[in-house]
Design a protein around this nucleic acid. Structure first.
Lengths: 228, 228
DNA sequence: TCTAAAACATGATATATGTCATCTTTTTTA
DNA sequence: TAAAAAAGATGACATATATCATGTTTTAGA
């Protein structure tokens, strides 16, 4: 199995703060696994005995609402850690993670992480900063969900995807999302989402090529998102 | 000025993890102030050079949305810390806090908190746990905002207030909220909020005595919140 | 206590969005 | 490759909620 010391991915998350010895210990106790597109990494209410470090691929992190609809809270990709919150609160997971494409993830047992959190203040400070960032992002999302229209939320989501998941040089978003996924991101009915996408396309804001979606007019989309 | 060592309030937040010496240092550098009902503790985008520890009173924590409407994200009361997130991320505040009644708060300078975070792993772990809890709460709120109707959100808010802010033995909620505040909590127009409150009253779910609101039928309100 | 201002309340109306039904296109699988 | 299944698209319709207007009650200030 490959070693953490040589893994570039850890540079993108709090594990970069670990000392050489700590990293060696992590490397020795971690396991690695491949997850196929559509498979679940962990379920809501599942007891996670550690954290996942995403080596490759992308997944959707969601939560079921009382009315039986799924809400996607985040798209998490290469370099991120998953399951930190549950580990720290010592609770079962409140979220579910499903692969949007084939993935490779490493699993680091809880005991090792907790030890490092206790011993290495650079590490714990980094985790704390990460969590603080997530909290700010969550606050922003609450405001958007509470105050923006579905149309505005869709425009925001498209812009977000365009800015964060546009890896190739064409205009298409490089995440394999169904219309239902879009609906679950913005918290709307699938039909409404489809209608609004068609509308955006008609207005020349986006490009639709069956499943692939590309942003054509970022400026105008921003106007829609901000309701001008 | 009173000493932190003798303050009961710190038992309710992460400061309880500080050692005697650390607490003495905090006590020596803290300042205390009284804030009148309606006054602002801190503004959005204000640079906070420390954290607030609420000794008495209650405030609303909110954020302005792009469309100029205010969204209340939290009601924070005696025993809580305010401003941790900004301190940790080393950013200006993303939120605003306004007193809903007369308050007494202590202000602890950033340098002292950062030092304790670095030196005392029990303290940093406690802050981390608090932040993890806030994050879970935020995730739940996102789902509610995205997926529930205004009516459901109002029912949820009333239940939340009833459970957390019902200090006396009558049925009334002990927080002085205007109808606009309610609207800002659930992310709806003030008129819609008023209409729904009247509706709940007509159905015997709540009691309205001018500004004071009391919960009469918790079970039925839960049904509304869950959409049965 | 009186008056002005703020908060609360309610009606009329417009509109955004959800729901249900049906059809078409794309993807998967046998 | 054909058939079946899933995903996407669109129309008709119902309804929740925002907006604007206006009136009433409560609160705060002189």
């Amino acid at each position: 199995m490959s070693k953490c010391e040589q893994c570039i991915v850890r540079q993108f998350n709090s594990l970069k703060e670990l000392t050489r010895e700590e990293l060696q210990r992590v490397s020795a106790c971690k396991t690695s696994k491949f997850i196929k597109k559509g498979e679940t990494i962990f379920e809501e209410n599942e007891h996670l005995d550690g954290v996942f470090c995403i080596k490759d691929g992308i997944c959707k992190v969601s939560k079921m609402s009382a009315n039986g609809r799924n809400q996607i809270l985040n798209l998490v990709t290469k370099g991120s850690l998953l399951g930190e919150r549950s580990l720290i609160s010592d609770e079962v997971s409140n979220l579910k993670a499903v692969a949007l494409e084939d993935m490779e993830v490493c699993f680091v047992p809880k005991s090792e992480i907790l030890l490092d959190l206790q011993k290495n203040s650079n590490f714990s400070m980094s985790v704390l900063k990460g969590m603080a960032g997530n909290l700010k992002q969550a606050d922003n999302l609450i405001v958007d969900m509470a105050q923006k229209t579905v149309k505005q939320r869709l425009a925001e989501a498209l812009l977000y995807l365009h800015r964060n998941f546009n890896f190739t040089d064409d205009e298409f978003i490089d995440v394999n999302l169904s219309r239902e996924d879009f609906a679950d991101i913005i918290g709307a009915a699938t039909e409404s989402t489809i209608r609004l996408l068609s509308d955006f396309k008609k207005k020349g804001l986006i490009l639709i090529k069956s499943k692939r979606i590309g942003i054509l007019n970022e400026l105008e989309l921003e106007k829609v998102a901000k309701d001008f």
